[in-house]
């Protein structure tokens, strides 16, 4: 499926800002189920862009706007081709065998098994959650992950505005609600506690054709989880929508948690405050 993306981030300052240094991760990745055919990035005021690939292979652009300015606009436009790839198990599998196979990957995937400030979860909290969710009722690891995805979806309410980009798993557990970022962190925490390597994915979900009357643009920016399944590779799960990843999903960046993939990050000088407006439009071409 061919999908187009238009993502504009607009900063306004109530006074003169200067020496604004920024780093953005908005360029969709190429992987086994998607190809980025075109990507253009425009920054206003005009400036030089510096591109590199980070530790996780994400595209990063950095730039600075040193002269005084009262507005900064970052516009990213992309064209991505996605496919539906169903995870296929190449070998017979059972949960115990798969978990044992994961033990051999411990070292190579160590980054995705460790905890960060975002994904810290106590043994007791995790135990409690697993007892409620009962993911082991499934026959294999894929089913285990689907069950966990479904549990997070049904047990936690989607409620924008309740949490922030700094919310931790412990806070989400206490609130019983959150947004896609919180659910992704929660799922990472549980997977990693159980020895399943899991990584954070940021990207877009194409939903404009689902209900044309409601253009919930901001919702097109999305976050989900990929878990490593032996014999299958990285498989995507979306606990916010209780589904596996399909052609509607565009992967932009992956990392250990939100901090590794922050889409736009910047520091500026000036005795003024900033407001940000974001518009995201993802549609089928």
């Amino acid at each position: 499926m061919l999908l187009s993306i238009n993502h504009t981030t607009d900063y306004r300052y109530d006074g003169p800002a200067s020496h604004s240094v920024n780093e953005i991760r908005l360029h969709p990745r190429d992987n086994h189920r998607q190809r980025c055919l075109r990507f253009t990035l425009t920054v206003e005021p005009e400036c030089q862009l510096f591109h590199y690939r980070d530790y996780f292979g994400n595209h990063v652009y950095s730039f600075s706007v040193n002269n005084q300015h009262r507005a900064l606009t970052i516009s990213a436009a992309g064209l991505v081709e996605t496919t539906d790839v169903q995870p296929e198990m190449t070998e017979p599998h059972d949960l115990a065998g798969q978990l044992a196979a994961l033990a051999d990957c411990r070292s190579q995937l160590a980054e995705y098994l460790s905890f960060s400030r975002y994904t810290e979860i106590s043994r007791q909290q995790c135990h409690q959650l697993l007892a409620d969710a009962g993911p082991e009722r499934a026959s294999g690891l894929l089913g285990w992950l689907e069950n966990l995805t479904g549990y997070i979806y049904s047990r936690f309410a989607y409620q924008p505005g309740l949490t922030t980009v700094h919310t931790t798993v412990t806070e989400t557990l206490a609130l019983g609600a959150g947004v896609c970022q919180d659910f992704a962190h929660l799922m990472l925490a549980v997977c990693r506690s159980c020895g399943i390597p899991a990584r954070y994915v940021s990207g877009y979900q194409c939903i404009t054709d689902l209900n044309t009357a409601c253009t919930a643009f901001a919702q097109a920016s999305h976050a989900w989880v990929e878990a490593f399944v032996p014999g299958c590779g990285w498989v995507g799960f979306d606990p916010t929508n209780n589904c596996m990843i399909n052609w509607r999903y565009i992967t932009v960046a992956t990392g250990r948690d939100y901090r590794d993939i922050t889409p736009t990050r910047g520091v500026y000088t000036g005795n003024c405050s900033q407001t940000m407006a974001v518009s995201v439009d993802v549609r089928r071409c």
């Binding site: 240094v21 920024n22 780093e23 510096f50 590199y52 950095s62 600075s64 990050r265 910047g266 520091v267």
Partner: peptide
């Protein structure tokens, strides 16, 4: 560098790590 490492750091130089990378 508050852009690369701790965002609350006031001691560092924003953008230093990318200047180093470049």
């Amino acid at each position: 560098d508050p852009l690369a490492f701790r965002p609350d750091s006031l001691l560092g130089v924003p953008g230093l790590i990318n200047a180093y990378r470049a």
